[in-house]
Nucleic acid binder design. Structure first.
Length: 813
RNA sequence: GCUCGUGUGGUGGAAUCGGCAGACACAACGGACUUAAAAUCCGUCGGACUAACCCUCCGUGCCAGUUCGAGUCUGGCCACGAGCACCA
């Protein structure tokens, strides 16, 4: 039977019946946790991108399994989230119904992929058995001060009608729907991820992650070393602190600026300036976030009428408010040094404020103002002449002695806003009581179930707020009537710990057993899209560290090794989308060619981390390749009994060389996700087998062993086909219980090697030398070759460089 | 604006520590088989020069440099992509 989707079904059935991919719980010493980022069960089916991620990671896992690892390879669904809810608003189909239906479809499709998933460990985040523990983790974070509620200006997406975390805002727009994000003052729940800023940074270097991803996280955390310096408000008891990385320019301060939102503004503004200040604050509040963050917009501000006292000189400097100072970073106040900061310079020029130079450039350096580089101090009293670098420490030291400042590290990372004014998510397990205030739901009352019958037309208010039987409850503490929190949790909360739940997904006593996950985690290989660099991957690291510090697990990082698959584009080289009409539907190709052909094309046609455009010609080529192998094996199976020779001459040596070279290369390449070159080596092996098969007198034993190795090498990419071929050759079930082939070092040594001979670095001719020849002999062979004199042409040989097995370079003059 | 990444035939993509550029495929072209087509098999396949082969020369975005030797290392530039962006 020629390979087709029928073969797929035959072996999928057999695998299921024999439970071949069941994880062995009793052999944890050899465990290998291989994980793909779980998928969101959207209305559509599995797309080419899912296949690329899941199918090829499965190929990697299959090799690992054959190499003797006890592979843990679970699957699940990130099932809460906005698309299902929006779909419901449009069609009236309840999110729970559509989601569970989609999950059933995707499970079927995933099974048809023929992967090694052990479905016993499935996790679905929207089921109460799961989100009970999401809520439990929320309560632990709350107890340890890592979850808190505050009123703050937050990102609001007017189209999604919910708040967003900083990470979900791209260029001032909603990450999901691209609407412009506005600011809104709301009381919301936050997770204190900033407590881990430094550790999140410190652990990055040791992770086997793409450098780019580590860089993104480093930028996102944004560590900045500087100083906090105190300024007193003149004629008042008030004071405030500024954050600066340029304490060396302190003597150049000619005014200070507060963010318009700063609380101090009301208290210090003088009566004569009050109207102007109020007006300005009003204007600023109307400017959109995008405009406010624009660097090209002209800076504006107003004088408050108040003065601050310079901490070292005692001078009075004006206090301004201006919208180029951000309320949320540092202290929300800056000292302005127009001579040495471009923004301050622009502002000072516009409003005629003093510009005072305190830094000179080194000799020969253009230090025209504004001069923002390091240099040497001037006009800075006893610090004159020393370098910026020294001054930053010396000046802060002096401030310290006067109790007016100290060194300070600031991070750009903000706490993670987790409340969402939407329906389809995990309820927040908190009750508000008039008497007792904020009361956590007792653990034995979890889960706080998400009610089914809810009107979820989005109007900016949480749908749950309008569900009387949900919202009205009694206070767990005093028993009086009380109200539940009506928001739900950001779905990134659910996905921040699912990898911890997989190994212990049926545990109904705890989120996960500590002893078990200490053995099962960290994840050894994690594969998924690069778009999660600053969101999921950062949140999951935070959760792991927080759970560790709360005593629930004993490792520092969730994912030791990370790979991002590239993106498969449409045949036109554009991103696949329904509106472009360039999507590739895996199901159709699988019906036509079988799932192995589909998977193998994805492996061969692209550099894994790059991705690229889909090609129908490419998949046809793989179909031909599979047929070519099948013809060879069917022919061989029919001739297997016939007598062959046991000779081991040069033809056999050559075949054996290609065989072992393929084993070595494919093994190395699969290990590092270079599937395209691994398959190229297998193709070479098949070509060599064809060549050998055409000979009169063949060594049948060698041929059989070689074909079997070829099947084994192919099996991770074409699991169904490999089973079929293995069976055809009389191998026992299953090919996946065979050990991965090992290469023989001796077979890789050829009797003779071809080497290039260069004259002055240019290849002129080739010579064959015995592979055990030493450098002396190789040099001699190159020089005594009949072609040598023609190229040397009587010139002097300056030197001869021999690179064993590669080339000889004769340098002549 | 700052930071990082990428740039190789008609196409997808290879190339170890600086060592024969273009593996493996696709497409194209020529041939064999066939009544014919499909399938299959064999051959050619970076460019210039050439009737053709050899030879020679050029060739990994561009310009320099280091080196016996550079796709690979260094400096500068160009293009594309990504991340950050009034972060004090």
């Amino acid at each position: 039977m020629a390979y087709s989707v029928e073969i797929d079904r035959k072996w999928q059935k057999k695998w299921e019946e024999t439970n071949i991919y069941r994880f062995d719980k009793d052999n944890l010493d050899k465990k290998l946790y291989c994980l793909e980022m779980f998928s969101y069960p959207s209305g559509a089916k599995l797309h080419a991108g899912h296949w690329y991620n899941f199918g090829l990671t499965d190929s990697w896992a299959r090799m690992k399994r054959m190499q003797g690892h006890n592979v843990f390879h679970p699957q699940g669904f990130d099932a809460f989230g906005l698309p299902a809810e929006n779909f419901a608003i449009k069609t009236g189909i309840h999110p729970k119904d559509s989601t569970m239906q989609n999950i059933a479809t995707m499970e079927e499709q995933l099974k048809r992929m023929g992967a090694t998933f052990d479905w016993d460990y499935e996790v679905i985040t929207c089921l109460p058995e799961y989100y009970k523990w999401t809520q439990w983790i929320f309560l632990q974070l709350y107890k340890h001060g890592l979850a808190y509620r505050k009123n703050a200006p937050v990102n609001w997406c007017p189209s999604c009608k919910t708040v967003l975390a900083n990470e979900q805002v791209l260029d001032g727009c909603c990450e999901r729907c691209s609407s412009e994000v506005t600011k809104k003052n709301l009381t919301q729940w936050f997770f204190r991820i900033t407590k881990y800023s430094q550790e999140l940074l410190d652990c990055l270097p040791d992770l086997d992650w793409p450098e780019k991803t580590k860089k993104i996280q480093t930028n996102w955390i944004g560590r900045s070393e500087g100083a906090e310096i105190e300024f007193k408000v003149a004629d008042s008891d008030l004071s405030f602190r500024v954050f600066t990385t340029r304490a060396d320019t302190l003597y150049g301060v000619t005014y200070v600026v507060l963010a318009p939102e700063n609380e101090l503004v009301d208290k210090i503004t003088t009566d004569t300036c009050r109207r102007a200040v109020e007006e300005y604050r009003n204007t600023v509040s109307k400017v959109s976030e995008i405009d406010r963050l624009s660097t090209v917009r002209e800076k504006t501000g107003v004088f408050t009428g108040a003065y601050a006292i310079h901490p070292l000189t005692g001078e009075r400097v004006q206090i301004w408010i201006a919208d180029y100072v951000l309320a949320g970073y540092g202290t929300g106040c800056v000292m302005a040094v127009p001579a040495h900061d471009e923004r301050d310079y622009e502002f000072a020029t516009k409003y005629n404020l003093e510009v005072k130079r305190v830094i000179k450039g080194a000799e020969g350096i253009d230090d025209a103002l504004p001069f923002t580089e390091d240099g040497f101090l001037t006009g800075s009293m006893e610090f004159d002449g020393i370098s910026s670098e020294e001054a930053r420490l010396a000046i802060v030291k002096k401030l310290e002695s006067k109790n007016a400042g100290e060194l300070k590290v600031t991070y750009r990372l903000r706490d993670w806003l987790v409340s969402r004014q939407r329906y389809w998510g995990s309820p927040i397990p908190i009750v508000y009581c008039d008497k007792c205030g904020t009361v956590p739901v007792p653990e034995d009352q979890l889960p706080v179930e998400l009610p089914y019958n809810v009107v979820f037309t989005p109007d900016g208010e949480s749908p749950l707020a309008k569900c009387e039987e949900f919202i009205n409850t009694t206070c767990p503490s005093c028993g009086d009537p009380a109200r539940r929190d009506s928001d739900t949790l950001d779905t990134f909360v659910c996905s921040s710990w699912y990898f911890l739940r997989y190994p212990d997904n049926k545990n109904d006593k705890e989120a996960f057993n500590r002893e078990l996950i200490n053995k099962m985690l960290p994840v050894d290989k994690y594969v998924g899209g690069a778009e999660h660099a600053a969101m999921h991957l950062l949140y999951a690291r935070f959760f792991t560290k927080a759970l560790r510090d709360m005593g629930y697990l004993d490792f520092d990082e969730p994912f030791l090794s990370l790979v991002h698959q590239g993106v498969i584009l449409g045949p036109d080289g554009q991103k696949m989308s329904k509106s472009r009409g360039n999507t590739v539907s895996p199901d159709e190709y699988i019906e036509k060619y079988g799932s192995d052909v589909f998977r193998m094309y994805l492996a061969f046609g692209f550099s894994y981390v790059e991705g690229g455009p889909w090609s129908d010609d490419g998949i046809k080529a793989i179909d031909r390749f599979v047929n070519r192998i099948e013809r060879l094996i069917i022919k061989f199976a029919s001739e297997k009994g016939s007598a062959g020779s046991d000779q081991f001459g040069s033809d056999e040596k050559e075949l054996n060389y290609v065989r072992h070279f393929a084993i070595k290369s494919a093994t190395d390449d699969i290990e590092v996700f270079q599937f395209n070159t691994a398959i190229a080596r297998i193709m070479e092996l098949v070509n060599a087998l064809y060549k050998y098969d055409a000979l009169e007198n063949r060594n049948i034993k060698l041929m059989e062993d070689t074909i079997k190795d070829a099947i084994l090498l192919l099996s991770p990419f074409a699991p169904h086909f490999a089973e079929e071929m293995w069976e055809l050759l009389g191998g026992g079930y299953s090919v996946f219980n065979q050990p991965w082939p090992a290469y023989d070092e001796k077979a890789l040594v050829r009797d003779e090697v071809e080497m290039a001979v260069q004259i002055n670095g240019q290849v002129k001719y080739k010579i064959n030398v015995s592979s055990d020849a030493d450098n002396q002999q190789i040099e001699e062979a190159a020089l005594t070759d009949e072609r040598a004199d023609g190229y040397i042409g009587g010139r002097n040989i300056v030197k001869v460089i021999v690179v064993k097995g590669r080339l000889v370079n004769i340098v002549v003059k």
